[in-house]
Nucleic acid binder design. Structure first.
Lengths: 234, 234
DNA sequence: ATGAAATTAAATCAATCGTTTGACAGACTC
DNA sequence: GAGTCTGTCAAACGATTGATTTAATTTCAT
């Protein structure tokens, strides 16, 4: 059944992309066949190969569609942050905000539901195969390098090695939370509530900030987290 | 029937399991075919269906082989911990230690390399499909519930909802770190060093402990982490 | 309106998937 | 020794995979 179409002349290419995104988010990149995608998009089996050259080509398009904007917005936010504070170190919370906020920005640009979008992003950033198109990988590497430097400056005295490991742990918390949010609900028996996006972002930032600096510093006057904040004043 | 006379007969089943584990760790549960497994094990294609009923049966065996021991050791360690301290709350670091130490215990019981073992565990605990055999799922749920109570007692005044979310973030950091350790190395350009298992465990525990309590409490006299500790005295 | 290009549908490709079959050899019980 | 399990094997099963071909249709500038 077609879930995307409605207007039969909406560009087939676009319908394919949207169908692929929803299916990839739901079942993972591996478990979805070309026929699953074309069926859902109401298109012919050959359409994928016509428009994207191959299944892999479609995957690459889907990957690049969000990863690049997210990473570029991350970079832009970090640069704006550093411009703001001059040469001084940026509070860890603000670096983290620059790191995760782009997801909230891009989720609105997407036609996917919030839940599906984050599942998809979690799969993208969490998948190992990581056959990222070269362009995507390039942006990714430079972005990570920039954030490593920013964190290193915000956590003076910390060895580069430790900065990398804390970034890795921090990113793991973020990715896993995005990809498996509903698993938490299943295991907690509903005790995990139904937080808004802002609440979840805030929860992550506070958790990650504490982990990044590990009490080895005084919490630097953290900016009040935006959005509805009920549970936990700093 | 239980005569183990034939040496190569029992070995086939075992070889299949070990081959499957290595391949699953390397490429993920989805990307490995039955023929990949039987070829690597030097067995016939039909062997998997003969010994395990189906491919899914083999997957279930592989899943249960480590998940159950890990979760049971987690429970045992937590109970020993609570017995030790009487009714008092356990320091967060010690609860976390009970949560991750079993991986270090079980890695030695395994014939896989350290790297492959953790990749496999990361995939198991991180995969979403989570078609865990019912027995495995049962142990999993009770174990999580017990740890939630322990963390709640160690973090007084924290709402159950927040405890669940911090556990989720904590587990994400752990799982992602286990599954994608080599990704860190690739992205950091070698700047992430070559830490020992104990160093990595210690890094995780300190990161997670800080995130769990988020500076909302004084760090409770944490036990000195075992193993080689050079970088970061508490 | 016409011709060229774009896009589709339908059929088909070889390859691979998980699974099944039936035969066969060895080891055991009676 | 007949009968009966168990484990293994080559071979093949039908189904599905990603990809390709062929022909018909639509789109659009001229």
């Amino acid at each position: 059944m077609n879930a995307v179409a409605g207007d039969s002349k909406v560009a087939t290419k676009q319908r394919l992309i949207e169908a692929a995104e929803a299916l990839f988010a739901d079942e993972g990149f591996d478990r979805v066949s070309v026929r699953d995608i074309t069926t859902k998009a109401g298109a012919n089996v050959a359409a994928v190969n016509y428009h994207f050259g191959s299944r892999e080509g479609l995957v690459a398009v889907v990957l690049a569609r969000y990863i690049n904007p997210v990473n570029e917005e991350r970079l832009a936010r970090l640069e704006a942050l550093e411009r703001k504070v001059g040469g001084k170190p940026v509070p860890v919370e603000e670096v983290l905000e620059a790191f995760v906020r782009p997801f909230a920005t891009q989720v609105r640009r997407s036609e996917l539901s919030e839940k599906l979008f984050f599942k998809l992003m979690g799969r993208m950033f969490g998948q190992e195969g990581c056959n990222l198109p070269p362009v995507v990988e390039t942006v990714f590497v430079t972005m990570l390098s920039r954030f490593q430097k920013a964190f290193a400056k915000s956590l003076p005295g910390l060895a580069a090695e430790d900065v990398w490991w804390r970034i890795h742990l921090m990113a793991g918390a973020m990715i896993h939370t995005m990809a498996h949010a509903e698993t938490l609900q299943r295991f907690s028996g509903g005790d995990s509530g139904s937080p808004t996006l802002e609440q979840t972002l805030s929860r992550f930032i506070r958790f990650a900030a504490a982990g990044m600096r590990q009490g080895s510093e005084e919490p630097q006057e953290a900016e009040k987290p935006k959005g509805p904040q009920v549970e936990f004043p700093f």
